[in-house]
Design a protein around this nucleic acid. Structure first.
Lengths: 362, 362
DNA sequence: TTGTATGCGTTATCAC
DNA sequence: GTGATAACGCATACAA
């Protein structure tokens, strides 16, 4: 332990300078990793720093340098298990680069978001990762007005120094649909999230195209639009079950919907995956612990966090260029136990093998 | 919108002073809510602040005042749904009082925790809420050495300026046991978390005492010790099911264990709650969405966060007093659908009504 | 009550 | 390469 006695952190750069018998400026150069310091002096300085337990005062640093070394992270809702993992990854990354992170969740409340954003501006954050999957119009205006580097998902903020993270929803959804097709499903429903939101449009479009790609007529790939919630899932499930020709598999736009679907199946005595296959989206922690464990399209929180941070780095080094190249982020299917061959698959073996030829499966 | 053009936040206290035709000192007094400023001057100052979009520079403030207005929040693991809600409550509270909070999760990794704590010290946090339910010995030493106000759960940090949050586990666990007793259960198992940890000892002790209180002999209130995880729950369930006289209800030391128990029951075809009642602890978000929705002892994250923040406030105003009065935090049962009367209850009606007299149920 | 002047701890700009 | 010294933006002691 090199920490000093109970004395307040009152040790400053001048004391270090004295002890190392150099000037404060030299100490500063050392702590900032400037290479223009003679080896032997640097060594003396480090020794003094160690002995005194000196740590540079970040607010003084920020004041004079104009850089706060604080970032903002805006998420939709912290209680959605998707986000804590994202937060953790982002904070770890930021921490490794000597940044702190202010995290705020909108909870889909515009005023709440506004308050948080004001705090970000006041604290002089050097960049903000807007990981909210919703483009609340003008929400970011204050950030943009202050010319703060922004990373957003799916859609760019015009006029901002920003980078867009382009999530490739199609990648994972394609895998999901083909996975189901391979198992023999020929009627696949899609439980979509609310439509104005671009992310949901993209997820749905990806599904529709995938279904088309494997040769499913659109009436065999019905879409139900609901909320991105447990209840939204139950509604979707009821809708599909009560339709004329219920699908044998349901792909959901997020995992909470899938959990809702699972619940309805359980209540109706419909066995998953024997009588119905279910696929989620996001692959939140929960997916592993529902019954049965959920097959889901994973959007990696690590990838997302990393892309977000890299986006900010790019913006910092880009100087005045407003809008940079988007960064792509993939998705991929995680197969668990909520998907299997439909009952009818065996019965229809003959037909299926004919179909097989038409399926666009590599 | 009162924000200024794209100009950098370069507006400082002097510009405000000029525009309001007062001295910088007066502006400072106004922004700090000092009451010693003449009404009409204050009004002029606010107007200027508004017009210029001035926000005081927090690092300058921190530098001169010695107060960073940053707090630390240490949690066990951010992916455990218990904590995000706690974080949110704490951050909201802190934000309302003009504090930012640095959140770090140990992930049960000592080195990771140490790194985070170092960052806290470096950033000159004014207080830390240690919400980790584990007393990693000496983990807090650096915080204590710097005399940083600490709030901890269950157990105090000696030598520290600290307040302990005393969680009343017994309150909710008592309710759970009595709830089960009222339903007619006479054999209740307890799936405990790992034993060295005080919080788990307390939870178990609370259970043992509750069982005793309602007249259960100890062999009718067996305890199994396992990990606080899904797997720990499955092990507990298997243990109880394979015992000579399996309990008709299982109380778990946390919700993840309960989810594990649920899974085993489902796999064995044992219907919950018809054939087995299950109670969790923590009442995490997930509890609501498993099948069936879990009856659980709730430890309010709001209460906890609020108590933590109040603890810090007390420490700030307490000056040099080291250890203050503990703050009590309650727990309470949330009844959902994983608990019901045991099958045998009806058959044994006669015996039960006799027992009833001995049950300590108001 | 208000203004002036000083210092918080650091980095940056100069000279040397 | 290294060392004085002037900002950075604000709060506050002190003077008025």
């Amino acid at each position: 332990m090199s920490t000093q006695k109970g004395k307040r952190s009152g040790v400053d750069i001048i004391q270090v300078a004295r002890r190392a018998e150099v000037s404060p400026a030299t100490v500063s150069r050392v702590t900032n990793g400037r290479s223009t310091v003679a080896r032997h002096l640097a060594k003396r300085v480090w020794k003094a720093i160690e002995e005194l337990g000196y740590t540079p005062n970040p607010q003084a640093r920020a004041l004079v340098s104009g850089r706060s070394r604080v970032l903002g992270l805006l998420v939709s809702e912290i209680t959605n298990p998707f986000f804590p993992e994202l937060m953790q990854s982002f904070e770890d990354l930021a921490g490794a680069h000597d940044f702190e992170v202010m995290v705020g969740s909108t909870n889909y409340n515009l005023e709440r978001a506004r308050v948080f954003i004001r705090r970000l501006v006041q604290r002089r954050v050097e960049g903000v990762a807007v990981m909210t999957f919703r483009a609340e119009s003008h929400l970011l205006d204050e950030l943009i007005a202050h010319n703060i580097p922004l990373v957003t998902i799916d859609v760019s903020a015009d006029g901002a120094r920003s980078v867009v993270l382009e999530v490739d929803y199609a990648l994972g959804i394609d895998q999901a649909v083909q996975h189901l097709a391979l198992l023999g499903h020929r009627r696949i429903g899609f439980a979509s999230g609310p439509m104005p939101h671009l992310t949901n449009v993209r997820r749905r479009d990806a599904f529709v195209q995938s279904a088309h790609k494997i040769g499913l007529p659109s009436q065999s790939a019905p879409v139900f639009v609901g909320e991105h919630t447990f209840e939204g899932g139950t509604q979707a499930a009821l809708h599909f079950l009560d339709s004329k020709a219920p699908p044998t598999a349901i792909v959901c736009s997020n995992d909470m919907m899938a959990v809702g679907v699972l619940r309805v199946m359980s209540e109706r005595g419909i066995k998953v995956p024997r009588d119905m296959s279910v696929v989620g989206f996001d692959d939140i922690h929960l997916a592993e612990f529902v019954n049965p464990p959920l097959t889901s399209v994973r959007m990696s929180r690590q990838d997302l966090a990393q892309a977000a941070f890299r986006g900010l780095e790019k913006l910092w080094s880009a100087g005045d260029e407003k809008s940079l190249q988007p960064i792509r982020v993939g998705t991929s299917l995680v197969v668990r136990q909520s998907t299997d061959a439909p009952k009818e698959a065996l019965a229809a073996l003959g037909r299926r093998s004919r179909m097989q030829d038409k399926l666009a499966i590599r």
